[in-house]
Structures are given as C-alpha cells and as structure tokens.
C-alpha cells in the first residue's frame, strides 16, 4: 500500500512535457507569491504586539517577543524575500528555500503568538518547506525532480490534514458532531467576529437557511465531515480530482456558513488537484512550445 501511495504521489504523467513543466512551475510561483503576501503582511503587524499569549512551534523554546516593538520582522521579511526570489528566478542554490522556510516559521510564530491558531497559511508553509526539502535532499537531481517531490509531499500532507481533521471531530465529539444545533452556535460565534471587525453583520442566504432548519444545518455539517474524512483520497491520482471538488465545496461552505475563506488554500487546491498538465499537453501547440529555448531557459526549466 505504501508503495502504491508513493507511486501515486511522485509519478507524473509525461514528466518532460510542457504541461507538467507549467504545472510544477506555476506551483512554485504561486508559493512565492503567497509567501510574500503573508511574510510582508505579518512583518508590518508584528511590531504592534507586546506580549506572547500562546507560544507556537519554536516559540515554545525561544522567547519570540524579541520580534516585538522593533523592525526585526521587517528584516526577516527582507531575508525571506531574498532567499526565495533567488532560487525562483535564477534557479540555482535552491537550498535557500529551506532557510526561507525556517525564517517563515519564525515569522508565523511571532505573528500568531496572541492565542489564535489560524491554518489558512499552512499549505503555503508546507509548500516552502517542501521546496526546501526537495532542494536539499535531491540536490544532485534536476529541478523537475525536486519540484515533483515537493508537489507529492504537499499532496500527502494535504490529504492527511483533512482526514485527521475529520478524526479530531469524531474523537472529540463523536458522530453527533453533525448535529445542526452546533452549526447554529458557530454561526453565532462568527457573527461576533464579523461584527467586531466591520461594526455590522448580516446573515447570508445559507446562514438564514441553516438557522431556519436543523435538518439543513445537519446536512451542511454532514457534507463537511464526509469531504474531510476522504481527504486521503487525494493521494491517489484516480480519485484526486473528485476529492478536490468536494474539498473546494467544503471551503465554499465554510465561507458561506462561518465567514471563513481560506483563499490561498482553495486556490492551491485548484492549482494542484486537477490534471492541468494533461489538459495543457492536449493543446495543439504544446509540443512546439516545449522545444522553445527561451521559454525553457527563462520561464520554465530544462
């Protein structure tokens, strides 16, 4: 079984084709863009913090408050930028991604030291870590090989994460987790967060529907638990796209019922979960473009 999973995660159809190169490189560019968004957004917020309420990750071992009330987070964002833009554009010293991943971890634990444990940036965190691991452990191999490893690594933890989330619910609450009244309580909770953020809150159509009927609220939670439980199906090429459709539906549902939209997560599901490589390879000009020197040298890879 393990061999079957490994084969499904790390074997790409037509690995040297234009479609595979574009999908892998698009994943790398996507990771860089969101890395920059998060690293810089947090960089300008961290100096406002004063105390650590809840230490996460390495903040359990080092006093991360040295990031507060100064510009260390900004300098850290500069380093993260340098250590990721160089391997992205120059395509050399790709092990720098590993340092960027470490510094990004510090940026995260400094930013989220206030009691909140958000997961919206987890997939981007996994992505930069995977790029670093691929570059360090497969440094004698091609960029394509390193990227395929990173891609498979993320798919593994993506599937594992959703399935463990379902197990967390079943262990902590049991099958009654899907009882619609629980959704009512969470809608009330998110009501306060939105009210606190914008000074006003209006129920949307799905929230009104769920609040009007316990059956509908239960159905919403049942769909969510079902989608999460089968998260591990993304490990298998044959079922990946179907599970990804369910997970995208799950995130749209979370957004509509609880006003929590995991933008980066959802976009990355779309980018990684569908066989874009196969679809691109079907384009009539794909074979000619794959031989284009400029494209391979400057934008993709050889």
């Amino acid at each position: 079984m393990i061999d079957r999973i490994i084969k499904n995660l790390f074997e790409f159809e037509a690995p040297d084709s234009l479609g595979t190169k574009i999908q892998l490189r698009a994943f790398e560019v996507f990771t860089f863009i969101y890395l920059m968004i998060y690293a810089w957004e947090w960089a300008f917020y961290i100096p406002r913090l004063s105390t650590v309420v809840l230490p996460l990750g390495l903040a359990n071992y080092i006093d991360i408050s040295f990031f507060f009330n100064n510009n260390i987070s900004v300098y850290n964002a500069v380093l993260i930028t340098l250590f990721s833009v160089y391997p992205l554009l120059i395509k050399k010293q790709r092990w720098l991604y590993a340092i960027a991943a470490f510094l990004f971890h510090l940026q995260y634990v400094a930013r989220f030291s206030q009691g909140e444990i958000p997961h919206s940036a987890n997939l981007v965190g996994f992505s930069i870590l995977a790029l670093g691991l691929g570059a360090v452990f497969f440094r004698d191999k091609s960029i394509r090989h390193q990227l395929i490893f990173a891609f498979g690594f993320i798919l593994f933890y993506l599937g594992l994460g959703y399935t463990t989330a379902a197990f967390s619910k079943l262990i902590a609450t049991g099958i009654t987790w899907v009882d619609g009244k629980h959704l009512w309580l969470w809608v009330g909770e998110k009501h306060i967060d939105i009210l606190s953020k914008y000074g006003e809150f209006q129920l949307n159509w799905l929230q009104e529907l769920a609040l009007s009927s316990k059956g509908i609220a239960t159905s919403v939670l049942l769909f969510g638990l079902f989608s999460e439980f089968f998260g591990f199906m993304v490990w298998f090429k044959k079922f990946r796209w179907a599970e990804i459709v369910l997970l995208i539906g799950l995130h749209i549902g979370i957004d509509l019922t609880m006003n929590i939209f995991f933008a980066a997560f959802t976009y990355q599901l779309i980018l990684m979960g569908f066989p874009w490589n196969r679809w691109i390879n079907r384009l009539p000009s794909s074979q000619n473009l794959n031989k284009n020197e400029f494209l391979n040298h400057w934008i993709l890879f050889k």
Partner: peptide, 20 residues
C-alpha cells in the same frame, strides 16, 4: 500543532460554550 504541521483540531469540540 507545530506549524505548518497540524492535526487541524478547530471546531472539533462541538456544542461547547464560546467566548469572543
């Protein structure tokens, strides 16, 4: 929780009182 590794336990305890 050891970012980015997580078992994603959010909303696992249903029906509990909350505080915001």
């Amino acid at each position: 929780e050891f970012w980015p590794f997580s078992i994603y336990p959010m909303f696992s305890q249903a029906g509990n009182p909350w505080s915001r």
